[in-house]
Write a protein that binds this DNA or RNA. Structure first.
Lengths: 226, 226
DNA sequence: GAAGTTGTTTGATGCGGGTCAATTCATGAC
DNA sequence: GTCATGAATTGACCCGCATCAAACAACTTC
C-alpha cells in the first residue's frame, strides 16, 4: 500500500459523485483538502470487520470486494464496488465500525474522505443529506434485489439476469466484456466459481457465447425466460 | 380493509418514532393531520410490486410481510415489519414504486403518512434528514446481515442465531415467545416451514425446548457454537 | 522460449434443503 | 362436545450446488 496525492482525473471522479455536485465550491474544496489516496495490490485488505473506520472510501480505479467471514472461515461477498462507488456510508451513521471486510479484488486506487466532515456537511446542508438519502435508498434496493435473487433464482437464472442487466434495452443481440474476473462475479452472485462456470455452460444452449471475459448474446428472448 | 381515525395510542406510537421526535410540534401536527389509518385481515395485500406508492406505512399493530414473486409464483420474503416500523422509505426517495409486495401476515393496523410531506420535511429540516439517514443505514445493515446469513449459515445455524438475538446478554438460560407464527419466521429466515421445523428439532439436542410459540434455552454456549 | 503462478473448466460425490404427501396438533365455530 | 380449518411436524424423495480433485488455459517471470 502506498499513499499518493490526488491526480486531476481522481478529482474529476470525486466531483462527479451525485452528492458532491450538490456542494458549494468551498465545501468541495474542504473535502478534497482532507482526502487521502492510496494504491493497493490485489488481495490487500482495506479494513476488517469491526474495525473502527473514520473514512468513507471512494473507488478511483480497480475493484473492492466486501465480504463477511463464517465461523468456519468461509467468505461470503455482500457487495462489490467499482469505480466511483462509496464504501462505508452505513458505518458513518451507525457505530462507525465496519460491518464486513474490504479487500481489493484487483490492483486498485481508493480515496478516503473524512466521514466526520461528511457527517457535518450532511447535518448542515439538506442537499447533501438528500443526496446521501438517495444513495442509501439505492443501496437498499440493490440489497433487496440481491436477497430476492438468492432466494428465488437458480445459478443459471442469476447469471442470465446479470447478463441481461448489461444489455441495452431493445437490442436483441449484443456483447460486452465482464468488468472483472469470473472469480469475483461468482462471489457477487453468491456462487462458487465452479457453479458459475457450469451456469455459463448451461446458458450456451440459450445462445450465450463466452470467450474469456467476452460475453455474447444471440437470443435475448431465450435468456429472459430462463 | 376499513379506514379509521387515529387513536391516542396510535399517536403515541407515531410520536415515538426516532425521526418524529426531532420534528417541531407544528410539523408533527401537520404529519398526523394528513395521516390515515386502516385495518387489515391476515393475508390482505397492502400494495403490489411496481405499484406507485405515495405513502410511507407505519405498522401500528400486527405484522406486515414484504415479499417478491418469482416467475414460477414462488414467494421470497425480503423483510418482516412489526409494530413501530416504517415501510416504503426506499421508494419515497427513488421512483416511488414498490419494490415488492406487502401483505398483512396477521390482523394488522397500519398508518399511512404522506411521503410527499415527509420528503419536504427532510429537505427543510436536517434533523429529519439525519433521522432518516440513520434509519436507512440501520436497514442497510440488517439487509447485509441477512444476505450474509443466507450465504454462510445452515438452517439450524440461522435459527440458533435468531434465538440468540432475542437473548439478553449475560443470561445463560432463558425463554421467550415467538412474536409471530413459525410460518412467518420460516419466510423471514429464507426457509420452507418444514426446514424450520427440522431445524428446531435439530436444536433440541443443544438444549432448545420448543412448545408452541414458546422457546426455552437451557445451554447458551451450545447454541453459540452451533 | 521454459516454468511457475493463478484463473477456469470438468468430473465425481455428498449434503442441505425444497417439495409433496400424510399425520398430528391447535384453534376456533357451532 | 363435534367438526372444520389451518398450522406444524414427520417421512420420502429429489434437485441444486458446494466441495474435492484433477486437467487445462492464460499470464508472469525469468
Amino acid at each position: 500500500m502506498k499513499t499518493l496525492r490526488l491526480t486531476s482525473s481522481d478529482r474529476a471522479i470525486l466531483i462527479n459523485l451525485r452528492f458532491f455536485s450538490r456542494l458549494p465550491r468551498t465545501a468541495q474544496e474542504a473535502i478534497l483538502e482532507g482526502a487521502t489516496v492510496s494504491t493497493h495490490e490485489a488481495h490487500d485488505t482495506l479494513f476488517r470487520q469491526d474495525d473502527p473506520i473514520d473514512d468513507v472510501l471512494v473507488v478511483l480505479s480497480g475493484l473492492v470486494r466486501l465480504y463477511r467471514l463464517g465461523k468456519d472461515g468461509r467468505e461470503a461477498d455482500v457487495a462489490v464496488f467499482q469505480k466511483g462507488e462509496l464504501i462505508g456510508v452505513n458505518a458513518m451513521f451507525l457505530d462507525r465500525r465496519a460491518t464486513a471486510n474490504a479487500q481489493a479484488a484487483e490492483p486498485s486506487i481508493v480515496a478516503r474522505l473524512e466521514s466526520g466532515k461528511l457527517r457535518q456537511l450532511a447535518a448542515e446542508d439538506t442537499g447533501v443529506a438528500q443526496a446521501l438519502l438517495e444513495l442509501l435508498c439505492h443501496h437498499g434496493k440493490m440489497a433487496e434485489d440481491c436477497l430476492a435473487e438468492d432466494r428465488l433464482l437458480t445459478a443459471p437464472q442469476r447469471v442470465a439476469n446479470y447478463i441481461l442487466s448489461h444489455c441495452p434495452i431493445g437490442s436483441e443481440s449484443f456483447s460486452f466484456r465482464l468488468p472483472f474476473q469470473k472469480n469475483v462475479l461468482a462471489g457477487k452472485l453468491g456462487l462458487a466459481p465452479e457453479a458459475l462456470s457450469r451456469a455459463f455452460s448451461t446458458l450456451r444452449r440459450s445462445g450465450v457465447v463466452v470467450k474469456g471475459r467476452m460475453i455474447e448474446i444471440r437470443d435475448r428472448q431465450a435468456l429472459e425466460q430462463f
